[in-house]
Design a binder for these strands. Structure first.
Lengths: 209, 209
DNA sequence: CTTTTATACTGCCAACGGCAGTATGTCAAC
DNA sequence: GTTGACATACTGCCGTTGGCAGTATAAAAG
């Protein structure tokens, strides 16, 4: 009975309050998605696994003739969560289809590249908008649903905001850069010089500490 | 016979030159991993799928008594790749276990939080170092193995460098921020004020265009 | 009182990750 | 000239995940 990181992310939510599977699925999509994106479908399986592991208990009530199961964390669950917080996380990993389109843009034409960049920009703005909405919620009622958690939420939000702003700014820069291109296959001499300068900058990592 | 984004990333590599499965697996880990991370194991299946789809051909040679299969893109493959470059990419998605540890740090203790942040920082520096090595290769021999592709490589590298530098700088900021904390559960008044200021900043997205 | 929308899931299957295993090639040391 | 270490070059297996489709009831809107 091995639990995945997804299991622990659900267990983490259960450490804050009781939830139904449906609420957990909603909450994962609304907030945790930004750092741990998982299909809604999978979230429904996790509480069952947690119960099987002894980390949660379920209470089945009813709304009309429909069953409603509410899950709660157990002391063993809290202990397991505490232990997990001391384990080493996997490195962050980024899936970026839009960048694949850019990397191999020389196999397509200039219009396609520019549409891809516009899509990346629009998607960054969209995600940024979702974060702004979450933030508004946190500002109102002085800290949102979990006002005792403002400090950790702020740590995380600071990163996510910059992350999505960075995507947008990069897309804008790339659009400006490619505005001077005549085709996707042959860089102009100026573009070539700027490219080599990017490589030289990148080859020299900043001081670590 | 539906091809995945992983299939198209392999097809993209084949558009540059011929490769063996092993070389493709290496190249994916070395470079494309940063934008499309996939297990080495899976890369071995992709060329076969591309052959089945008519997008690649295979030629089996030999090194001693060991078979060596080299894959090449077909005209149909080039056409399919061109069409794919015009499709809409999925939004970028980030998996960040370290941030999960930070978000639920109030369920653990201060030492665990600081170790998590140090790990995030070290992993960012490590990834940045891999990018610096790639860049050195691109600077030498005036553009690396594919000098005609400097312009698209520069576009992508610019983003990736900033992405990993951002992770490092954020981890350093978070370490400084948490240096003032007495525990993980109760923010000081000052920390609480700074948190609410983060939310207010975040609630106000910058001008889109 | 009927249609729409939200709630609350489950089944199915292809894609994926990670580990273990197999087998050959290359080079350096003994 | 053989042994061992390491690199090359994959394949099998199995549990996890993503995404689509489907089922069914409750609540809200018209």
């Amino acid at each position: 009975m091995n639990l995945s990181t997804t299991s622990y992310s659900v267990l983490s939510l259960l450490s804050l309050r009781d939830w139904t599977s449906y609420e957990l699925a909603q909450q994962m999509q609304r907030t945790l998605r930004f750092v741990w994106p998982r299909a809604e479908r999978k979230i429904y399986d996790e509480p069952k696994r947690l119960v099987a592991a002894g980390y949660a208990t379920s209470v089945t009530g009813a709304v009309g003739r429909r069953a409603r199961t509410t899950y709660s964390i157990t002391p063993a669950g809290r202990a397991a969560l505490h232990a997990w917080l001391g384990t080493t996380p996997q490195p962050a990993s980024l899936e970026f289809e839009g960048m694949l389109r850019v990397l191999f843009a020389d196999q397509g034409d200039l219009d396609q590249l520019r549409v891809s960049l516009e899509t990346v920009k629009a998607q960054a703005i969209e995600a940024r908008q979702r974060l702004a909405e979450l933030s508004e919620e946190l500002v109102s009622n002085d800290g949102g649903a979990f006002p005792e958690r403002v400090h950790v939420n702020a740590l995380s939000l600071r990163f996510l905001i910059d992350h999505h702003d960075h995507q947008r700014r990069w897309a804008e820069w790339a659009l400006a850069e490619t505005a001077k291109w005549k085709n996707t296959t042959t860089p102009t001499d100026a573009a070539r010089r700027r490219a080599l300068q990017v490589f030289r900058d990148a080859a020299d990592p900043p001081e670590g500490r």
